[in-house]
Amino acid sequence: MSEKKEPNLWEGFKAFLMRGNVVDLAVAVVIGAAFTNIVNAVVKGIISPVVGAIGTKNLDHYSYCLKDPCTGSGDTATGVRILWGSVLGATITFVITAAVVYFLMVLPMAKYLARQEARRKAKEGTQEVIEVSELEVLKEIRDALVAQRGSGHDRE
């Protein structure tokens, strides 16, 4: 009997790393991290100052005091403070991220893929017409040869 050799740990790990989806995921994480820096810069450099024109320039300063007295910050704070400005800032960051991803990545890629699909379908349609016409020509040639052969046998 032949013994099945089990792959060793290193071979299994190497096969796992060489799968396409693992590499794609790693690239997506790296690109996502770099993209996060861009979005954070847009929020910090453009959106926060625009919002700050209405109130404070730092959204983290927006808060509501549930239980007085709300004094101090960090570990020395007293009272119960709701930091709704932080939630607002995170929400704005999320909406901007989603908008940038959609309008600069998803929408153009969807349009590109739709154009590629339309080209592929048009090419397939052309090939079908060519194939049909070639088939018809071959049938006509066959019929002509059969007709010639039939008429040639009649002479003999």
Rank of each mutant, 00 (worst) to 15 (best):
F35S: 04
E6F: 05
E128W: 09
A147G: 06
G85F: 05
G45E: 04
V87Y: 06
P69E: 05
D24C: 12
A33T: 13
E128P: 03
V100T: 09
I82R: 03
I31E: 03
S86I: 05
G150A: 09
D68W: 06
A114Q: 09
T91D: 00
F35W: 15
T93Q: 02
N58P: 03
Y112K: 10
T91H: 01
K139G: 02
A77E: 13
A90W: 01
N37P: 02
V106S: 10
R119F: 15
R115G: 11
S133N: 15
V29S: 04
G32Q: 06
A28R: 09
G20L: 00
Y64M: 07
K67I: 14
T78W: 01
G45Y: 00
A114R: 09
G150Y: 03
T76I: 09
A110P: 01
V39I: 13
A122T: 07
N37C: 09
N21Y: 13
A15N: 13
I47T: 00
D154R: 13
L113Q: 09
R81H: 07
S133R: 15
R155P: 08
Y64T: 03
I38D: 03
S63N: 02
E6T: 12
V95K: 02
A26W: 09
R155H: 14
C70Y: 01
L17A: 01
E3F: 10
R119S: 11
A33N: 12
A118Q: 09
L88P: 00
V42T: 06
A147S: 13
V106R: 04
D24S: 14
T126R: 14
